[in-house]
Amino acid sequence: MPQSLKKIVVVGPESTGKSSLCEGLAAHFQASWVPEYAREYLLKHGMGYRYEDLVTIARGQLELEDRLVAAAESRGESMIFIDTDLYVMKVWGEFVFGRCDRWILDQINERHYDAYLLPRTDLPWTKDELREYPDLLSREKLFHIYRDILINQPVPWAEVGGEGQQRLEAGIDAVNRLVNHT
């Protein structure tokens, strides 16, 4: 019987190395990874997004995830790394607009993942045209929101810290521990 694909999601505040961590973990484990759809959307449509755009972005994220998960399964891969899920959309909506669309909340309940990684805010801020919160106070507040979400859901998770190779090695150790990968 073929083993099922393990889906490991990286969530957290902006500029905490989520994309780099996903890419590095995918290379280490010879796996695929799903990039963050919001970056593509905002680069195309600009930063003047509205509350209603969050559902469009969420749908795009799930479509991209489903397509890349199916491709990884067809290749017989054992795991896939996902840069953000709908918890990110929930936090984004609530932090920026004070609310989250019901469809996003329903999707959070319907989707299944095997582990979460939460990168710490210990990396220096990297300026990017799509980033909105350069101050450490906001980033730490968001980190604690994500941490609270992960504490209060059933999927195993771990915090990942350090810079560069140290961060990647912490991520590798966490993945091995969380999904019992040998």
Score class of each variant (00 low, 15 high):
M79N: 08
I8V: 15
F97R: 06
I151W: 07
L68S: 09
R131L: 04
Y37Q: 07
Q3C: 04
G12P: 02
W33L: 12
S78L: 12
V88N: 14
W157D: 04
R131I: 07
I145P: 04
K44W: 04
H45W: 07
V69F: 01
V88L: 12
V34S: 02
S15Q: 03
Y49M: 08
V10K: 06
M89K: 06
W125V: 01
V96T: 13
D66W: 04
G60V: 04
D83W: 03
D173C: 06
I82P: 00
Y146R: 10
P119H: 00
D135N: 13
L86S: 03
D135I: 09
T182L: 13
E63T: 09
G24L: 00
P124L: 05
L5A: 06
L62I: 11
D148E: 15
H28D: 10
V11R: 00
S19R: 08
Q166L: 14
P119S: 03
H112V: 10
T121H: 11
D128S: 11
S19Y: 09
I82K: 02
P2Y: 08
S4F: 12
A174L: 11
Y51R: 14
G171V: 02
K90D: 10
G93I: 01
V34Q: 06
W103T: 13
G76I: 11
M79H: 09
E140P: 11
T16G: 02
R111C: 02
L25Y: 06
A174C: 08
T182K: 13
A26R: 04
P13T: 08
G164T: 13
D128L: 09
V55G: 07
V10P: 02
S78F: 03
V175E: 08
Q61D: 02
L130D: 10
S74Y: 01
L118C: 05
Y113L: 04
A58I: 02
D106L: 05
A31V: 05
